[in-house]
Amino acid sequence: MTVVAHDLTWGAGRRAIVAGVSLAVARGETLGLIGPNGSGKSSLLRLLAGLRKPWSGRVEIEGRDVAAVARRALARQVAFVQQHAATETSVTVRDVVRLGRTPHRSALSGWSAADEAAVAAALARVDMTERAAQVWQTLSGGERQRVHVARALAQAPRILFLDEPTNHLDIHHQIEILRMVRELALTSVVALHDLNLAAMFCDRIVVLQAGSVIAAGPPEAVLTTDLLRAVFRVEAEVVPSPRHGRPRILFEPG
């Protein structure tokens, strides 16, 4: 499914956090959102997913205004993996992932074999099958993040929004989660801090600064020495990876 944003503006109080953002995500594409802290990445993701109402502008999914789509119908198409989520309830990993099936079930429907298969497949995709019976509160931050992704996968969405999905993960699971996202053949929008991971796994990148789009395009066109200096205030050399040809950022010590 396609996602298109038209001149989105949103903020808190009188301050605009997202300012006039327009972008388009093609069907099956993985789009990366990068930018310094406070640049509006998380807020833009929530606007794109229909979780916030913009001050102005609109978001279209497959040509239809998100504001006109019923919440339950939208939840069958769109999944959102947030940066931080917590619960004080004593639940197991399997219980958390089962929540992803909620949009597909009516109040009177029982738990089906299809529901169980979706949960099992989602747990396997994030390497958490052996932890399915473990209590949520006993998980590490990285394990919780993987469970959040599994819950989104159990939802069987056609569009996946992820806000810093690699937070708290070791490097192995950072790479595995992003590789999985690319291989899912979904339309995906992911906010990332790690510029090398964005370069490695995103088809295109949008750079945000102070709520506005500064640059957009394929990683090799966007991630330049000049942009890194201007937006992120770092000195770095950008070279093609000898393995896959994508940009590789070599940061220089200060």
Rank of each mutant, 00 (worst) to 15 (best):
A5H: 03
D7E: 13
T9Y: 10
G13N: 13
A19H: 15
V21D: 03
V21F: 11
S22Y: 13
L23V: 12
A24L: 04
V25N: 10
A26R: 15
G28N: 04
G32D: 02
L33P: 11
P36R: 14
G40K: 10
K41A: 04
G50A: 07
G50P: 12
K53M: 07
R58T: 10
R58N: 09
R58M: 03
E62W: 03
G63W: 12
D65N: 15
V66Y: 01
V66W: 08
V66I: 15
V66A: 01
V69T: 14
A70D: 15
R71F: 09
L74V: 13
A75I: 15
Q77N: 13
A79P: 09
A79D: 12
F80K: 07
V81D: 10
H84V: 08
A86C: 11
S90A: 14
S90I: 09
V91D: 06
V91W: 13
R94T: 04
R94D: 06
P103K: 00
P103T: 04
H104V: 09
H104Y: 06
R105D: 05
S106M: 02
A107V: 13
L108G: 05
S109P: 02
S109N: 00
E116H: 11
E116C: 04
A118L: 01
V119N: 02
A120Q: 11
A124L: 08
R125Q: 15
M128C: 14
Q134S: 03
Q137P: 00
R144Y: 05
R146Y: 12
H148D: 00
H148K: 07
H148G: 01
H148Q: 13
A150N: 06
L153Y: 12
L153A: 05
Q155H: 02
A156T: 14
R158N: 10
L162Q: 02
D163L: 09
D163V: 10
T166H: 02
N167K: 05
N167F: 05
L169V: 05
I171A: 06
I171D: 00
I171R: 11
H172F: 11
Q174H: 09
L178M: 14
R182E: 13
E183P: 03
E183C: 02
V190S: 03
A198D: 04
A199K: 10
A199Q: 05
L208V: 10
S212W: 02
A215K: 12
A215Y: 11
A215F: 03
E220A: 15
A221T: 15
L223D: 07
A230V: 07
F232H: 09
F232D: 08
R233F: 05
P240F: 03
P242G: 06
P247A: 05
G254P: 15
